[in-house]
Design a protein around this nucleic acid. Sequence first.
DNA 1: GACAAAACGGAGCGGTGCTCCGGATACTAA
DNA 2: TTAGTATCCGGAGCACCGCTCCGTTTTGTC
Lengths: 197, 197
Amino acid sequence: MAAEGPAGGSASRSKRADAQRNRETVLTAAAEVFVTSGVDAPIRRIAAQAGVGMATIYRHFPTRADLVTAVYQHQIEACAEAGPHLLARAGSPFDALRQWIDIFVDFLVTKHGLADALQSDSDRFAALHAHFLDRLLPVCAQLLDAAVEAGDIRPGTQPYELLRGIGNLCVGRDDDPRYDPRRLIALLLQGLRPHAS
Amino acid sequence: MAAEGPAGGSASRSKRADAQRNRETVLTAAAEVFVTSGVDAPIRRIAAQAGVGMATIYRHFPTRADLVTAVYQHQIEACAEAGPHLLARAGSPFDALRQWIDIFVDFLVTKHGLADALQSDSDRFAALHAHFLDRLLPVCAQLLDAAVEAGDIRPGTQPYELLRGIGNLCVGRDDDPRYDPRRLIALLLQGLRPHAS
DNA sequence: GACAAAACGGAGCGGTGCTCCGGATACTAA
DNA sequence: TTAGTATCCGGAGCACCGCTCCGTTTTGTC
């Protein structure tokens, strides 16, 4: 709680220049390594790729979740912002929900191991899980509410449960032609529609 | 392919007495450790619990998947056998499918980390995944076919996809009151029902 | 009891997460 | 420009893990 430096500045600009530079270097390197080795890649490898020491990574991103969060920050944000946008543009709230889920799923399945990390049983990624929730849960809830309001789906589904379920369905090997999470998610959405008794 | 010893014996009885004894000891110890520490527990810990060396475990169960498979052998078998049984007893093929899935889910969620292991994107549990599939896929397919035949659900769903989807929905922390995989699986099944257009 | 085959146990190797601290670096003030 | 200092860096080091190798012990047989 000590006083901040002069002129405060925004979140990540109140550091020394080399620190700021290294932060970016690490983020770039991590993004590259994540593509080839998944978000579970050894910190040593990321450090080597960035040409820095391990401690530098830990100093900027104390937990692995912090690093992953920072790397995918923009895409999480884009996904969150797509929600209201779709709600305004799509043909129906249900379509908006469906398209938003498509975006979310595309995001998850193209990042090797990200879905696994999100639902990991260990606590190593707790902060990542929390950040996804903070940012995306309200969006999902809004879309869900709108669809219920419009009578497109039955009420009673909890946004958290739906979001985690979708994430769960994206877990595991993504190169298996026998398994496409999108088909199951479509079934799930179908199950949400009102009974046409 | 060398000649077997005298009196051959069934699968795991053609070894020396101490080996046979240790095999059982290890299985018991592993079952205990799995309950408290999950199926990812360190081999060292299981060895300590059993009072044997690590090499003994690796000798009897070359991969972790072999050990896990052996520990849960009986329950996998029971689950597989429940399929035809339910099909004969339940009110409808759909009910049979639903009840069988309940059994499967109960099995998964009560073994910490088992669902995670099954869908793990590493290859460490490949043999476990394969064994589950060998044993349960035909059962699931039979139940699915019967339900389609009876007109309870729409055709077109692949047993593998359904089984893996259910497994996926069981992944992650099992002590979160906000998330109950059974509710989502019920939705999934609902989505399988014919459109009452 | 002697012998060989089988099984055992744990030291040891490579790899990983994370920390600690001596040294290098960037800003500040004179 | 040059000192001085707070900040940051790098990698050695420790703990833990999976897995193997090999000298030792146990078991079954003659």
